Amino acid sequence: MSITLDGNQLTSLPKALLHLNDVTTLTVDGLSDEDSDVMQHVNRTLRGFTLYGTTLDESTSLAAMQYLSHLEDLSIMKVRLEEIPDRAFSSIAKTLHYLHLSQNVILGNFTLLCDLKSLKRIYVSHVEFAPDIPPVPICPTPVYSSERLDVTQSQLESFPAALLTFPNLHDLSLNQNNITDIDSSMVPANNEVEELRMSGNSLIAVPDALKKMKLLRYLDMSHNQIIALKDGDFQNLLELNTVFLDYNPITFIARAAFQNCPRVQKLSLASTMLVNVPEAMTYLPKLNLLDFSGAPVKCDCRIVWILKQRPGIRGNCPNSSDKISDFFHRSIVSCGENPAIG
């Protein structure tokens, strides 16, 4: 049974809940010390709990939350987190799998993440952190259970300590922040990252630390300020399959930018400033979808010479209604071979 008690300005949980024996999810505006008996009762079956629109500190909601010893999914939304004691969520340290923090203001201790040793997925969205509060703390003991971390639109200025605190992360999303680079010290050599999303940040170049993510399969660095790809930017990323670099002001891609990336199948360079198809495409033997939509790429024989028989080209020829793919197929015979390319 799911119970929602929001928007009704209750000062405490209704005692009627003491007569319900099958509450599995509960949504409330806030808690008080007087709610401890109700929380102890619903705890037997409660697996999902959402708290929002209140101030969470040691003197209010935490006293009642300590009774949630079987919780698997916790959402805290539109809440001010203040003066949080170190072991605030110790009662759910071994049961909590999913933590959602959205539209919060976090002013107090955030090392509570270090105690949640069963966390699998963490979602942090539109959260305002105090200047001295790191969004991802460095824990004395790493949390090995977490597989996915999403910190979106939370005013991050630098790459967080996510891979140090959660060494088994497979999926890391840091979209819509203000990150300008990836500090190599934040990326251990034995990291497990397979998917990295950094769309909408302030990157001006491909970070060197990216090459330490040897298991990377999916990369999204769209909507940044990258102007060029230099030799070796993606070198030896042997598992890389999908790359989004669209909506960057890219004007140049060095020939060896994708050297030894044998598994790349999809590459988006849509809405970049590229004029010529880069020779770097010759290093991508399995490329089957190349997106130039919105980019001023010239339709000339260079397209045929570099891409050869690869299908799946998106985009239009500039100042024309012709699709690049139509031009490509129409010009295969007339353009012939250029032994100087590829």
Results as ranks from 00 to 15, higher is better:
residue 85 P to M: 10
residue 87 R to F: 12
residue 87 R to G: 14
residue 87 R to E: 13
residue 87 R to P: 00
residue 88 A to H: 11
residue 90 S to F: 09
residue 90 S to V: 13
residue 90 S to G: 03
residue 91 S to V: 06
residue 91 S to I: 08
residue 91 S to N: 15
residue 91 S to T: 13
residue 93 A to C: 13
residue 93 A to G: 13
residue 94 K to L: 15
residue 94 K to P: 02
residue 96 L to P: 10
residue 97 H to G: 05
residue 102 S to H: 05
residue 102 S to V: 12
residue 104 N to V: 03
residue 104 N to Q: 02
residue 106 I to K: 02
residue 106 I to E: 01
residue 107 L to G: 03
residue 111 T to K: 13
residue 112 L to E: 07
residue 112 L to S: 11
residue 113 L to C: 10
residue 115 D to S: 13
residue 115 D to H: 07
residue 115 D to E: 11
residue 116 L to S: 06
residue 117 K to W: 05
residue 117 K to V: 15
residue 118 S to P: 03
residue 118 S to H: 08
residue 119 L to F: 07
residue 119 L to P: 03
residue 121 R to T: 14
residue 124 V to A: 06
residue 124 V to H: 02
residue 126 H to L: 15
residue 128 E to C: 04
residue 129 F to M: 10
residue 130 A to D: 15
residue 131 P to I: 08
residue 131 P to L: 07
residue 132 D to I: 08
residue 132 D to G: 06
residue 132 D to K: 13
residue 133 I to D: 07
residue 134 P to E: 03
residue 135 P to Q: 03
residue 137 P to T: 07
residue 137 P to D: 04
residue 137 P to K: 09
residue 138 I to Q: 11
residue 138 I to P: 00
residue 139 C to T: 05
residue 144 Y to N: 10
residue 144 Y to F: 12
residue 145 S to H: 04
residue 147 E to G: 09
residue 147 E to S: 14
residue 149 L to T: 11
residue 150 D to S: 14
residue 152 T to R: 12
residue 153 Q to S: 12
residue 154 S to F: 03
residue 156 L to H: 05
residue 157 E to L: 15
residue 158 S to T: 14
residue 159 F to L: 02
residue 160 P to W: 09
residue 161 A to L: 04
residue 163 L to F: 06
residue 165 T to A: 07
residue 166 F to P: 03
residue 167 P to Y: 09
residue 167 P to I: 08
residue 168 N to Q: 14
residue 170 H to K: 15
residue 171 D to E: 10
residue 172 L to R: 00
residue 172 L to T: 00
residue 174 L to M: 00
residue 176 Q to P: 00
residue 177 N to F: 02
residue 177 N to G: 01
residue 178 N to C: 02
residue 179 I to A: 00
residue 179 I to M: 02
residue 180 T to K: 13
residue 180 T to F: 01
residue 181 D to K: 03
residue 182 I to C: 03
residue 184 S to N: 08
residue 185 S to C: 04
residue 185 S to L: 12
residue 186 M to Q: 15
residue 189 A to F: 09
residue 189 A to Q: 14
residue 190 N to P: 01
residue 194 E to D: 05
residue 194 E to I: 00
residue 195 E to G: 06
residue 196 L to T: 04
residue 196 L to P: 04
residue 197 R to E: 05
residue 198 M to P: 01
residue 199 S to F: 00
residue 199 S to G: 04
residue 199 S to W: 00
residue 199 S to I: 00
